[in-house]
């Protein structure tokens, strides 16, 4: 049960960057229609959890996106049986709120709503609904990017709501050109406060991202807990790909 809670308490582990663990308000290119998957390993004092989500966003026009996310979760406790299965399904929508463009730079903001349903296997997922409301803003130019988000999640069945905040700084190592071949470094802060029980979690997340073409990228991130009121999380590691199909 504690390891299932680790999945539940993970701060925005299923975000759709770039950046890697933080949302972005840009709905274009590799943020748009396609699929994203990554493997995330969460190491704790009680065991290890492996999460493999598959997210498929689709743009309806320039300013609106819908999507679905289905994770597959495996739990390997130090004591007890291993368990694997599909986690809870989430549907999401994004609506652009503002867009200020100038030469080689942009500042944008959007709202995202995510609804999670208790469709997953009981051995690996919590049996509750959750509704998340998120505001995302980002400033991107050719030299760096800044993205951030704040969100509030309402959780059913008297489980505690949570407040999540993320911030990411991105730095391209190669000159920006098209067709793209980019190597980006990211440094992110991903935090969460679980209300009612008043538990805090904050990760420092360095990451690297290789964009090999207009339609494909590879990325990897390591999350180091700076604050962990649960006292059990050691670190997390993720490796993923993104492929644009639409």
């Amino acid at each position: 049960m504690v390891l299932i809670s680790c999945v539940f308490f993970l701060p925005e582990s299923l975000a759709q960057g770039p950046p890697i663990n933080t949302e972005t308000p840009i709905l274009l290119g590799l943020e748009g229609g396609g699929f994203r998957t990554f493997g995330k390993i969460v190491s704790t004092d009680l065991g290890t959890t492996y999460i493999q989500p598959l997210a498929i966003p689709y743009n309806l026009g320039t300013n609106f996106q819908i999507g679905v996310m289905q994770p597959f979760i495996s739990i390997y406790p130090k004591i007890g049986d291993n368990n694997s299965g599909f986690g809870n399904l989430s549907l999401f929508v994004k609506q652009m709120l503002f867009q200020f463009d100038s030469k080689a730079k942009t500042f944008r903001g959007l709202l995202k709503y995510t609804q999670t349903f208790p469709t997953g296997a009981s051995s690996v997922s919590a049996d509750n609904y959750s509704s998340q409301f998120m505001f995302v803003a980002g400033y991107v130019n050719l030299n760096y990017s800044l993205n951030g988000s704040v969100s509030y999640t309402f959780v059913s069945k008297n489980l505690p709501d949570n407040f999540v905040y993320d911030f990411a700084f991105g730095y391209p190592l190669l000159p920006q050109k098209y067709p793209p071949f980019q190597l980006n470094l990211y440094l992110e802060l991903n935090g969460q406060k679980t209300l009612k029980i008043n538990k805090n979690l904050l990760f420092l997340s360095p990451g690297i991202q290789l964009i090999t073409s207009s339609t494909f990228l590879l990325e990897s991130s390591f999350q180091i807990p700076l604050v962990d009121d649960s006292g059990i999380i050691r670190n997390t590691f993720s490796f993923g790909i993104r492929y644009l199909v639409f």
Binding site: L28, T106, V140, K177
Partner: peptide, 14 residues
């Protein structure tokens, strides 16, 4: 064109 800030975003424009 304004807003051209990331090469991986430009695929849709092409």
């Amino acid at each position: 064109v304004d807003g051209l800030s990331c090469p991986f975003c430009a695929y849709g424009l092409e």
